[in-house]
Design a protein around this nucleic acid. Structure first.
Length: 607
DNA sequence: AGAGGTGGTG
DNA sequence: CATGCACCACCTCT
């Protein structure tokens, strides 16, 4: 491809005055596509500084010095970035979106994100993270010197040097040829619509990250304190129980007996269980410990439960409370999984425990004068499975509003379905639930049997009855598996694809790898369709906030749930809107089965 | 620094 | 024979 710029001598204008800025913007306003990038002193808009905004066309990059030029007062700047008529090319747009909106006062519209496009094009094949440098290398064989980026850190008023300006300019110039080549592939692979969805979501992600969520640190600490007391007790109990096995007990400086072993060391625990206690455990995971009658197994499980909560949700969360906002601002990776679901880190809000045992979610609250409004899809994956397979019985059960796991149990075990089945036969329902979920993930009879504690033969019998009850489900799952192996990819009804790296026939692990792909391909359309629905819903819901109808915003999302913070007096109305928009999103491709999203209003996230 | 084990979520 | 999907964080060991 003929490059429209010289990578060794990128063309740019360094703009430090209002009049120069207006002149440049006038030229840019004629473009149908512009490249956009920002340079900052760091990642946090609340504490760091915006240094430049670069906007360019294919030949030249205009580098606006944001310290000298007040971009927010230039109408043409807002027009160019805010109009849907001009495509904005960015790499990892959610980052630039936040700076551009919250420092220069304009909401980016019509985003094309080269990073997300690449993730959509190679879902399942790559790491999921694609740097601009790697794309520049791959598509146009241009090297971007990423070392210069760090030179922006800690800058205040100094002029940028030539290396910095050249670097900044290239960041917008390379976007054009990458965009053109990706666009061809997006069409060729029929994933342009999914890419467009991801682009629309990127702004919503920018909003979520910027808004964050309030976390009551005092309440959090109190909770940790209670758990810490329990952990101390659990450690003592454990050591008291094993000390007789370690006769040469050492004393520490204060004359207290030192711990015989490190409770977190799998190696030392295995030694304890297998050499000292002669139990021959294959591992020390809960699945094994639960089966073990020895009291020490139980003591270890008790300790682990508290240790887990303290190590994973303790100080680390407190450290992540933003100094300026007093809130947690996790980062969301919208293409963080091979199925299309979000991943989340720093911290991972999606794994915060819920329930009475460890009510961490109660520490997340709305700001004063606002309410948490939360809604989640009910039995989403089961509904998707019913729709995609077209299974009459499953669809009928959902239409009648039956409790699905109870209904499945009644079919499999030849029992009568009643409204209080759940209360009368909890174990049967639990078994059916394990099957409902397990089979969606491609589980086999031996695992199923282990899970519900029956013999392998019985497990096989249950599976047989399950598939007799839902014959179309079986066919559909098998078709997903064989299609994926044939084609090398699987797809959701919205057209989100996941590709598979097929093993060589000569690979000694050929069978194992193929089996894994078959399981993944059974699950991907289901999990991925759920992700598609939630992503459309995020865009729809954000539109409602943007229209000015409601005061508030989306704080986060957890796979089948959207969490918002909305002004108190509007919460009732918004709750309806939230669940309606979620249902509308799902109905874009789920036509045979009714969708349901249950809203909840309160002062805590947990519900 | 990276791998493996463990366990939290949907 | 084994083999349940998708993640992230923390710990120990090498």
């Amino acid at each position: 491809m003929q490059l429209e710029f010289d990578p060794n001598n990128p063309k740019y204008e360094y703009i430090r005055s209002k009049s120069h800025a207006e002149e440049a913007l006038k030229k840019l306003s004629k473009s149908r596509v512009v490249g956009v990038d920002v340079e900052t002193t760091g990642f946090d808009q609340y504490t760091e500084t915006l240094l430049t905004v670069q906007i360019g066309n294919e030949e030249i990059s205009y580098i606006f010095d944001a310290r000298r030029v007040n971009l927010s007062e230039l109408p043409l700047y807002k027009e160019i970035l805010g109009t849907k008529k001009i495509i904005k090319l960015l790499h990892n747009a959610k980052f630039d979106y936040q700076w551009i909106k919250y420092v220069t006062g304009v909401e980016l519209e019509n985003i094309y994100d080269t990073m997300l496009a690449e993730a959509v094009l190679f879902t399942g094949l790559g790491s999921g993270f694609y740097s601009l440098a790697s794309l520049a290398k791959k598509y146009i064989n241009v090297d971007l010197d990423k070392d210069i980026r760090v030179s922006f850190e800690g800058m205040s008023h100094a002029k940028f040097n030539k290396a910095q300006l050249g670097y900044s300019a290239k960041d917008t110039l390379v976007l054009f040829p990458i965009f053109k080549k990706q666009l061809v592939d997006l069409k060729k692979k029929s994933v342009l619509n999914i890419a467009k969805l991801e682009f629309a979501v990127s702004g919503v992600v920018g909003e979520m990250e910027h808004r964050g969520i309030y976390m009551n640190a005092e309440k959090w600490k109190k909770l940790l304190g209670e758990i810490a007391v329990n952990r101390v007790q659990a450690v003592e109990d454990f050591y008291d129980a094993i000390r007789p096995l370690y006769p040469v007990s050492q004393m520490d400086l204060f004359g207290n007996p030192s711990p015989p072993i490190n409770l977190n060391s799998q190696l030392q625990l295995m030694d304890l269980f297998n050499n000292k206690l002669k139990l021959s455990l294959p591992s020390t995971g809960v699945a094994i410990l639960q089966e073990e009658r020895h009291p020490i197994a139980k003591l270890l499980m008790t300790y682990r439960q508290y240790e887990k909560l303290l190590s994973a949700f303790g100080e680390s969360f407190l450290k992540l409370v933003n100094k300026k906002t007093g809130r947690i601002h996790p980062s969301f990776n919208q293409m963080g999984t091979a199925t299309g679901r979000f991943s989340c880190n720093n911290p991972n809000l999606q794994q915060v425990p819920s329930g009475r045992k460890a009510p961490f979610r109660e520490c997340f609250n709305p700001k004063v004068g606002y309410k948490m409004v939360v809604s989640d899809y009910s039995s989403m994956e089961m509904r998707i499975l019913a729709d995609l397979s077209g299974d009459k019985k499953l669809i009928g059960a959902i239409e009648s509003g039956l409790d699905l796991h109870s209904y499945t149990a009644s079919l499999m075990f030849g029992m009568e379905y009643t409204d209080d089945f759940k209360e009368k036969h909890p174990l049967k329902r639990y078994a059916a639930k394990a099957i409902n979920f397990g089979l969606m993930y491609g589980m086999g009879a031996p695992s199923l049997a282990r899970k519900i504690d029956v013999t392998t033969e019985e497990g096989e019998e249950y599976m047989k009855r399950y598939f007799q009850s839902y014959p179309s489900v079986k066919d559909w799952l098998n078709n997903q598996a064989s299609d994926a192996v044939k084609r090398g990819w699987s797809t959701t009804p919205m057209g989100r694809k996941r590709w598979y790296k097929m093993p060589e026939r000569t690979d000694p692990d050929y069978r194992r790898i193929i089996s894994k792909i078959q399981r993944q391909a059974k699950n991907h359309p289901i999990q991925g369709a759920n992700a598609d629905a939630i992503k459309y819903a995020l865009v729809f819901v954000h539109e409602r906030f943007k229209s000015g109808e409601f005061d508030g915003g989306i704080t986060h999302t957890v796979h089948d749930e959207i969490v918002c913070e909305v002004r108190e007096d509007q919460a009732e109305n918004f709750a309806k809107v939230l669940s309606e928009e979620m249902v509308r999103a799902a109905n874009m491709f789920i036509k045979k089965v009714p969708m349901q999203s249950n809203p909840f209003i309160g002062d805590v996230w947990e519900h």
